[in-house]
């Protein structure tokens, strides 16, 4: 089990996935440029390139931002989540072509360094309609660069998962910056409503998906557990948990996943050490609790990843009383071994 845990390589599926992304991007760019050339014979290739890459990157960003909530709403979308990183890196490179080419086109061959020119040409920072929109694009690109550069798990461990997660939450700031980049830029010039309408529809889609996914979570978090005894809280009946699976309970500030496996119950923190994935939606595979997001694994009885991995989650005491499951929400230090609770199958 430990062996294939390490084998996070470029499997066939990842290769297919990468080829699909690549072929799709090339198709999009070719179609955009061709349509521009036919609809608008006076076009210049530079503008078609700037616009085809900008719109592609922005559309891909919408997809990337939708995958998270989609996978929470329906876990059958998880394969998209697992492979989202490559989409992100691709999006960054497409945006880089747009930004890089824009800097060349609008700022190179002048009397000022192009990167300074980006900030010093239009200096109407105090005006909304006059605002230097390209600077907003630059900062968005910088965020995307940081995210792409730190996308490898090496950086996740190096920066600490918390820091990494915070950095990657900046994608929402990048999204906002790009919306303003478009609103204060090309929208000030275009006469067709298409871009504005699509911008609004895109934002509505992203916000709705996040709200729906968030509401699902909040509902679970708001369940009240009235039966308490000697530090233990009654959470469900043993039959409510399927074999090799878990149920998640939010008690106070603790998110606890109770797994049923090998005739026993084990309680561990619901929060995966990788990227805070919901372990309670995972499954026990080959004796290991397996995170549904990227497949990190933990042993049920001590919350430790099998060697050589070093991740550890907190564990909790759990007991069975008259067919009901009781959990003590006071966490043991991460990786502490707990006996779990035997399930007496002859309960009423």
């Amino acid at each position: 089990m430990g062996a294939h845990y390490t084998a996070v390589g470029w499997n066939r599926q990842k290769k297919i996935y990468d080829w699909v992304i690549f072929a799709f991007c090339v198709t999009y760019l070719a179609v955009f440029i061709t349509v521009t050339a036919f609809a608008n014979p006076d076009y210049t290739f530079e503008t078609a390139l700037i616009r085809s890459t900008s719109t592609l990157a922005f559309l891909l960003l919408h997809v990337i931002l939708s995958i998270g909530p989609l996978a929470r709403i329906n876990h059958k979308f998880l394969p998209l989540l697992y492979n989202r990183r490559h989409l992100g890196v691709t999006m960054f490179f497409v945006a880089l072509v747009h930004g890089g080419f824009s800097i060349l086109q609008f700022h190179a061959l002048g009397n000022t360094n192009p990167f300074l020119s980006l900030f010093l040409s239009n200096t109407q920072y105090n005006s909304l309609p006059g605002f230097p929109f390209q600077a907003l694009g630059f900062f968005a690109l910088l965020i995307l660069l940081l995210m792409a550069a730190t996308s490898h798990d090496f950086w996740l461990h190096n920066l600490s998962p918390k820091m990494w997660k915070t950095l990657h939450m900046l994608v929402y700031l990048a999204y906002l910056l790009i919306i303003m980049h478009v609103m204060l830029g090309v929208i000030q010039y275009e006469t067709s409503p298409v871009l504005v309408v699509l911008l609004a529809l895109g934002a509505i889609t992203i916000i709705s998906l996040h709200l729906i996914a968030g509401m699902k979570e909040v509902k679970n978090d708001q369940v009240v557990y009235p039966n308490r005894k000697e530090g233990f809280v009654q959470v469900c009946h043993i039959n409510d948990i399927e074999d090799s699976r878990a149920k998640m309970f939010c008690i106070g500030a603790e998110r606890i996943a109770v797994f049923k496996t090998a005739g026993k119950l084990f309680a561990v923190s619901n929060v995966c050490k990788h990227q805070n994935g919901p372990l309670g939606e995972g499954k026990v595979v080959d004796g290991c609790i397996t995170c549904p997001w990227h497949g990190y694994q933990y042993l049920p009885h001590n919350g430790q990843s099998p060697p050589p991995f070093k991740e550890q989650v907190s564990t909790y005491d759990v007991m069975v009383n008259e067919g009901y499951v009781w959990v003590n929400p006071i966490a043991y230090p991460e990786g502490t071994e707990r006996p779990g609770a035997l399930i007496n199958l002859q309960v009423p």
Partner: peptide, 28 residues
């Protein structure tokens, strides 16, 4: 599900690209 989703999504994005391309203001 993933396949079905991708097969719908990708053409939709291309169509949005076409829509964006034709709605550009006429060039000088």
């Amino acid at each position: 599900l993933t396949k079905r989703f991708v097969l719908v999504l990708l053409p939709v994005i291309i169509l949005l690209g076409v829509l964006l391309a034709v709605s550009q203001k006429k060039f000088g």
